[in-house]
């Protein structure tokens, strides 16, 4: 597994030891483990010679840059109006049922975190969700069960 320091090094090489390297670094860490830990932020701050508070302030602005530990798969259900009209609530309920967690929680096995997101840009094929970066569309309670089962099997 890639070390955080390697990610930082690589991005600094690409973008310079400058503030503009910050988001690429944060994104790479999120791609790696779905969230940015306190100590990662401290390390980034040191590498870019900015304050850790600035790193935190920036990360916390963006909804995909989580600063709290998340599961291996972060599920983001679109809550915009069209997805809502097409049955988002049932989809969410189905997810809560099958994962046995409430919105905002992570499953005990650390596999799934269940979140909502603002518009995913899939309004014509809603209800929609992302699992990490993979979009799923035209969801129904049944399809949600299938998708989750697939992920579970993938891990096994």
């Amino acid at each position: 597994m890639l070390e955080i320091s390697e990610i930082i090094q690589e991005k600094v090489a690409e973008h310079g030891r400058e503030r503009k390297a910050l988001l690429p670094i944060l994104q790479s860490i999120v791609n790696l483990k779905n969230y940015i830990a306190d100590k990662d932020m401290v390390q980034i701050a040191e590498a870019l010679d900015i304050s850790a508070a600035d790193v935190y302030g920036t990360a916390s602005f963006y909804s995909f840059l989580e600063t709290e530990e998340k599961g291996k798969y972060v599920i983001r259900v679109c809550k915009s109006i069209t997805c809502e009209m097409k049955g988002k609530h049932c989809v969410l309920k189905a997810l809560e049922d099958t994962l046995k967690v409430k919105l905002g929680e992570t499953t005990h096995d650390g596999l799934f975190s269940l979140e909502q997101a603002n518009c995913l840009g899939l309004c014509d094929v809603g209800p929609a969700m992302l699992i990490n970066e993979q979009p799923y569309t035209k969801l129904t309670p049944d399809s949600v069960h299938e998708i989750i089962t697939e992920y579970r099997n993938k891990v096994k």
């Binding site: 304050s51 508070a53 790193v55 916390s60 600063t67």
Partner: peptide, 28 residues
């Protein structure tokens, strides 16, 4: 040039915070 304070979050959650919203005595 200390930058102990930052704006954190956005929208209605936007607030002034320290690093990870830690108490003042634990930050820079």
């Amino acid at each position: 040039h200390v930058n102990a304070l930052t704006a954190a979050n956005k929208g209605h959650e936007m607030k002034i915070a320290t690093f990870m919203d830690l108490p003042f005595n634990e930050v820079v």
